[in-house]
């Protein structure tokens, strides 16, 4: 009783108590594993796939494309394979984010400007795909894109009607297929924050802009877009970071053709049984994501409201 009494009066211990479960969770499942990963990444792999704890930069040198066992004078050992994978991941994440913004914004705008009673229905429709398992939805794309898939069959049928000699398109296991899958998977995570920030814009602001002589295009550029930018920023963070690390979409829709950092890491841990190299790749992925996010948020903020500065 008196413990409760004390707690009621002490605000700071209330805060500590409320933060305790999450703090414990984060330390146990994020901070400790991360430290472990860092330590392992400087280690060596034993012939049977065990970690030898030591300090070597070999894993990072390999990632940069050099063979640590190569004589230093010999330049032929350079192999940019891993750098290409990192670059591919980065550019795919960038392209996905841009495409998702371009597709999500008009839809979010439409939903935000629709009648309040219809709005919930539209949002519901946006969320429905999330009820189905992520992996299953990616497999569905496989059915659509493969050589004997729905799209090729339909195109073949159409081609047959107009008497055109149709060869099934190679769509599956291409970068395009991975991009389509990524955009599809992450679209809702962009629509929702953009919708939220657009919905908050009072109708009178559009009217005020029009009243002051701005046509719809200039109203959009000067009022709508700047006021909805926080939503775009929040959405970008929600999309860019997971896309950088995902391996399921590229695994299923990209096969062996489209290997991303995510796949590289997964294979090092499971197939190649080299946790030290996998750990190094994980850390590099994390640092890359952090750097991009840092510069991005420094320019645009974290998607918080535009408040009096």
């Amino acid at each position: 009783m008196s413990m409760l009494q004390k707690l009621r009066e002490n605000r700071s211990s209330q805060g500590t108590l409320l933060a305790l479960p999450t703090t414990f969770w984060m330390v146990a499942l994020l901070v400790l594993p991360l430290l472990l990963t860092t330590v392992i990444s400087f280690g060596k792999r034993s012939p049977d796939g065990e970690v030898i704890y030591t300090f070597t930069l070999n894993n990072y040198i390999r990632l940069a494309g050099f063979d640590p066992n190569c004589p230093p004078a010999d330049g032929t050992c350079f192999n940019p394979l891993y750098l290409q994978i990192l670059g591919r991941s980065l550019s795919l994440a960038f392209n996905t984010t841009v495409l998702v913004i371009l597709m999500a914004y008009p839809l979010a705008y439409f939903i935000a400007r629709s009648h309040p009673r219809k709005r919930n229905t539209y949002l519901f429709l946006v969320l429905i795909p999330l009820w189905t398992n992520f992996v299953i939805r990616v497999y569905a794309w496989m059915m659509l894109l493969r050589k004997e898939g729905v799209i090729n069959n339909l195109l073949g049928l159409l081609a047959g009607w107009i008497g055109y000699d149709f060869k099934p398109l190679e769509m599956l296991y291409t970068q395009g297929a991975v991009l389509v899958g990524m955009v599809y998977e992450f679209l809702p995570f962009m629509i929702l924050p953009i919708f939220t920030s657009l919905e908050k814009i009072d109708n009178s602001l559009y009217e005020a802009a029009a009243d002051l002589g701005a046509n719809p295009i200039r109203t959009f550029r000067r009022v709508t877009l700047p006021l909805s930018l926080p939503g775009v920023v929040a959405g970008t963070i929600l999309v860019f970071i997971p896309v950088m690390g995902t391996f399921i979409v590229s695994d299923i829709l990209g096969g062996r053709q489209v290997i991303l950092v995510g796949n590289l890491i997964q294979r090092q841990f499971l197939d190649a049984r080299d946790p030290t190299f996998g750990s190094a790749a994980s850390l590099i992925l994390m640092i890359m994501t952090l750097v991009v996010t840092y510069f991005y948020t420094r320019k645009f903020g974290f998607g918080e409201e535009i408040v009096a500065a």
Binding site: D202, S204, L205, E207, A208, A209, A210, D211, L212, G213, A214, N215, V223, P226, L227, I306
Partner: peptide, 19 residues
């Protein structure tokens, strides 16, 4: 349209651009 009329309005909630 409003943007082609030579009138201006002071709105009830002011409708100032917060950004």
């Amino acid at each position: 349209p409003p943007y082609q009329r030579n009138v201006n309005m002071v709105f009830q909630n002011y409708a100032l651009f917060q950004h």
